[in-house]
């Protein structure tokens, strides 16, 4: 029998996991703990990051992780992911589809999931560079040369990110602003400023640095942020559903399409 078939036969039999199990009618185990006993008075963020990482976070860390979510909850239907939620309601489709689609959209290139992942990847590379005793400048300019951007820096639409002063203050109040990754982020900003580059750090950069300083891996960090915009999406959906007529979300007239393709022609058989 071919080894791949043997493997599949093994896989066919069971799913091995340490993540957890529901013992029907008895109890639920989550990463070795009893959901209803060990987390009976826990808030949701505490459970969420434990379920993702399997590690316990301090109360201050949980507070900061909650604030990171709070500060990104923008109920503005123009933002592309929220717009999908509003359009879903305007089309009188259902809330779960709105949030699922808008959540998938949040893994965007210019905002959301992809920017945060790029930021953390860069920070990890930068720390590695420093650990090897190499100057940070070399990495910064190599990134600029090859990628024309740096993870954790730059933002579409506006140059300043209004969340940054708030999250810095919150991190300081919670005594979580002394980590190495946050220092690297500030150092990179200093390097860019000295060389007159007008690229400011973005919220994803700060969040990535704070999460890396809490020991999160890029994947854990990405998973923790999957639902970060949800408190902004839900009111967009509900408002378009209950506060407006169906089909009322910015209807576009025919002339709103500027056609640039070939002229009108006939299909000749």
């Amino acid at each position: 029998m071919h080894k791949h078939v043997k493997q599949l036969e093994e896989f066919e039999k069971r799913w091995r996991t340490s993540v957890g199990k529901f013992y029907t009618g008895e109890r639920v185990v989550i990463r070795g703990k009893d959901l209803h006993i060990d987390f009976q008075d826990a808030d949701w963020m505490k459970l969420l990051v434990f379920s993702i990482t399997g590690r316990e976070f301090t109360d201050n860390q949980i507070s900061l992780l909650s604030s990171i979510w709070v500060y990104s909850s923008y109920p503005d239907p123009r933002i592309w992911n929220n717009r999908v939620a509003s359009l879903t309601a305007s089309a009188r489709s259902i809330c779960s589809l709105a949030i699922a689609a808008a959540t998938a959209v949040s893994d965007a290139h210019i905002y959301g999931g992809q920017t945060e992942l790029r930021a953390m990847t860069f920070l990890i590379k930068a720390k590695y560079q420093l650990d090897k005793g190499r100057p940070l400048e070399d990495l910064v300019f190599a990134e600029l040369k090859t990628k024309r951007n740096i993870g954790g820096f730059g933002r579409p639409m506006v140059k300043q990110d209004e969340r940054i002063p708030h999250i810095f203050k919150r991190a300081k109040d919670l005594q979580l602003d002394n980590g190495i990754y946050l220092q690297i982020l500030k150092d990179v900003q200093g390097i860019l400023k000295n060389r007159k580059y007008r690229i400011a750090m973005n919220y994803g950069g700060v969040v990535s640095a704070l999460c890396a300083d809490m020991g999160m891996s890029p994947l854990e960090h990405h998973a923790y942020l999957i639902l970060v915009f949800s408190a902004g999406m839900l009111p967009c959906y509900l408002d378009a559903l209950s506060g407006h007529s169906e089909g009322a979300f910015f209807p576009l007239r025919c002339n709103s399409i500027a056609y640039t393709g070939p002229s009108i022609r006939q299909w000749v058989v």
């Binding site: 089309a91 290139h109 905002y111």
Partner: peptide, 21 residues
């Protein structure tokens, strides 16, 4: 915004699933 291909089609499905059109 540079989101994934799947999210484009999921969005089309979510919206196109509705009772209005």
């Amino acid at each position: 915004g540079g989101s994934t291909a799947a999210s484009s089609l999921m969005s089309a499905l979510a919206v196109g699933a509705g009772q209005n059109g």
